[in-house]
Amino acid sequence: MMMGKKRRLMMMEEALPHDVVELILERLPVRSLLRFKAVSKQWKSTMESRNFQERQLKHHQQSGGRDPDVFMSSASTQRTYVMGSSSSSVKIPNPWGKENPTTTGYFVSGNSCDGLVCLYHPLESGYVFNPTTRWYRPLPLCQLQQLMISQGESSYENEPGIFKLGFGKDTCTTTTTTYKPVWLYNSGLDNAATCEVFDFSTNAWRYVTPSAPYRVARVADPVFVHGSLHWFTDCKETKVLSFDLHTEAFQVVSSKAPFPANSYDENPYSIVLCNLDNRLCVSHMKGPDQVIWSFNSGNKTWEKLFSIDLDLNFVLYGSPTVSAFRPLVLLDGKKKKKKKKDLLFYDIMKTECLLIYDPETDRLGDFTFTADKSMGFLVCYFQSLISI
Rank of each mutant, 00 (worst) to 15 (best):
Y346G: 00
G333Q: 14
K91E: 11
W205G: 03
L343W: 03
T351M: 03
L310K: 06
I386S: 09
E352V: 04
N130Q: 11
M12G: 04
H121K: 06
V219I: 14
W302E: 07
G227K: 14
Y127D: 04
S201R: 15
P101S: 02
S112M: 06
L273H: 01
S211R: 13
L328C: 02
E54F: 12
S187A: 12
L330W: 12
V216Y: 05
H59A: 10
P213E: 13
N94S: 13
V252P: 08
A75N: 06
Y269Q: 03
L165Q: 02
C235M: 08
R215I: 03
S297G: 06
S201F: 11
D114H: 09
S89R: 10
T132C: 14
P17I: 07
Q42N: 09
V252D: 05
S86P: 11
S255D: 10
V39D: 05
A249S: 12
P258Q: 05
R215D: 11
P327T: 05
N296S: 09
L123F: 12
R79D: 10
C281Y: 13
S387Q: 15
A192P: 00
A192I: 00
E196L: 08
S297W: 09
Q53V: 03
S255Y: 10
L144P: 01
C380A: 13
D67T: 07
A257W: 00
Q143S: 14
L273S: 04
D69V: 04
K98Q: 13
L189C: 06
N51V: 11
L245Q: 03
L57F: 13
S263F: 01
V240M: 10
K37D: 01
F36D: 08
P29R: 08
L123Y: 11
D69S: 12
M349H: 12
F200M: 09
E352S: 07
D67Y: 06
L312D: 15
S40D: 03
T177Y: 01
G168R: 05
W135R: 12
V253E: 06
P320S: 11
C274D: 02
D366S: 11
D342Q: 15
A204Y: 00
R218F: 05
S40V: 05
H230Y: 04
S45W: 00
R7S: 13
V253N: 07
N275G: 06
F314N: 12
W96M: 04
S112D: 03
F259L: 01
A193R: 04
V30E: 08
L245D: 02
W183C: 01
T301Y: 08
I388C: 01
T80V: 15
G168D: 06
F198I: 09
A192Y: 00
K338R: 15
K98C: 10
F325G: 01
Y127E: 07
V70N: 01
S45Y: 00
S73P: 06
I92P: 02
K341Q: 13
L28S: 14
Y269H: 10
Q143C: 08
P68N: 09
P268L: 02
L123M: 13
S88G: 03
D67S: 10
L344K: 12
T103S: 08
K256H: 07
L312M: 14
S125A: 15
R137I: 06
S89D: 12
N262S: 14
F107D: 09
Q251M: 11
